[in-house]
C-alpha cells in the first residue's frame, strides 16, 4: 500500500502558481528521489506536502489519512518529518538542544533517543553543547537528519541533503541515508546531485515546469538517455 500519495497538487506563492498538478507515490520502506531542473517546483512540492505551502487543489494522503490541509506542526505528528534544504538547524541552540527540540512532541523522556542518535552520528556526540551555528556544513546536515529522526518517523522528506557539501561529505550523507532506510524508514529526496541520489533510490520522478515528466525505477532513470542528457550532465 502507498505510504504517501500526492494527487494532482496545485500550489504556489501569492499569485504565482508553481505546481500545476504533480502526483507522486512513496511506498513503505522505499527511497524515492525527485529530480528536475532548477525552479521546477521540487522544493515547493515538499513544502506543499508538509503544509508550509498551501495546497490549492489536489490531495495528500499519508498512511490512509488525508493531510492536505494540515498545518506543519500537525503533519509532524502523523510520522512524517521534513528536513529543509538550508537553515535546517537552530543555530543558537546547542546540538543537544536541537535534538531535544526534534523530540518536542514526544511525551516521554527524549534522552534515550538522543543517545541513539549520538550512536548513529558519532560526530555530534563529541561536543553536545556546541552551538549548532558553529558547526560545519556537513555536521549541520547530520544534525538536521538526527533532529528529524528523533521522532521515529515513518517517512522522511529531505530537501537537497547534499547542497553545499564537498563530494566526500556528500558520500557520507548518502551513506547515512541508506542506513536510515535500512531501519525501515521510507525517504523522499529532492536532489540536484541526480546521479548519486538515483543510485541509492528505488524509484525516481522527474519534474519539469511544475508537472510530472517521467517516473521510473532509480537505476532505470539513470540509464534513460534523455535523463542522462538533461540532468546528469551527459
Amino acid at each position: 500500500m502507498a505510504l504517501l500519495e500526492a494527487r494532482d497538487i496545485v500550489a504556489g506563492y501569492g499569485e504565482t502558481q508553481i505546481l500545476h498538478g504533480v502526483s507522486l507515490v512513496v511506498n513503505e520502506g522505499e527511497i524515492v528521489t525527485i529530480i528536475g531542473p532548477n525552479g521546477c517546483g521540487k522544493s515547493t512540492f515538499m513544502k506543499a506536502v508538509v503544509g508550509l505551502v498551501r495546497v490549492r487543489t489536489g490531495s495528500v494522503t499519508f498512511r490512509g489519512t488525508d493531510i492536505t490541509d494540515y498545518p506543519p506542526e500537525r503533519v509532524v505528528r502523523t510520522g512524517l518529518c521534513y528536513v529543509p534544504q538550508s537553515a535546517n538547524v537552530f543555530p543558537s541552540l546547542s546540538i543537544r538542544e536541537n535534538l531535544e527540540m526534534g523530540a518536542f512532541i514526544r511525551g516521554d523522556d527524549a534522552r534515550a533517543r538522543i543517545d541513539e542518535m549520538f550512536g548513529l552520528f558519532p560526530d555530534l556526540a563529541r561536543r553536545p553543547t556546541a552551538r549548532a551555528g558553529s558547526l560545519s556544513g556537513g555536521q549541520r546536515q547530520m544534525l538536521a537528519l538526527a533532529r528529524a529522526l528523533m521522532l521515529d518517523p515513518v517517512l522522511l522528506l529531505l530537501d537537497e541533503p547534499s547542497a553545499g557539501l564537498s563530494p566526500a561529505i556528500m558520500g557520507m550523507v548518502f551513506e547515512r541515508i541508506r542506513e536510515i532506510n535500512a531501519t525501515g524508514v521510507a525517504l523522499l529526496l529532492v536532489e540536484q546531485q541526480a546521479r548519486e541520489a538515483l543510485q541509492v533510490s528505488d524509484r525516481g520522478y522527474v519534474l519539469s515546469g511544475g508537472e510530472n515528466r517521467l517516473e521510473d525505477g532509480g537505476p532505470a532513470l539513470l540509464d534513460n538517455p534523455e535523463v542522462a542528457r538533461l540532468y546528469l550532465g551527459g
Binding site: T16, S43, K47, S86
Partner: peptide, 15 residues
C-alpha cells in the same frame, strides 16, 4: 502586495 504576502513561506530557501 498580495505577492509579497507569500514571501514569508519561502524563508526556508534563504541562506
Amino acid at each position: 502586495t498580495r505577492r509579497a504576502a507569500g514571501r514569508s513561506a519561502v524563508r526556508l530557501d534563504d541562506g
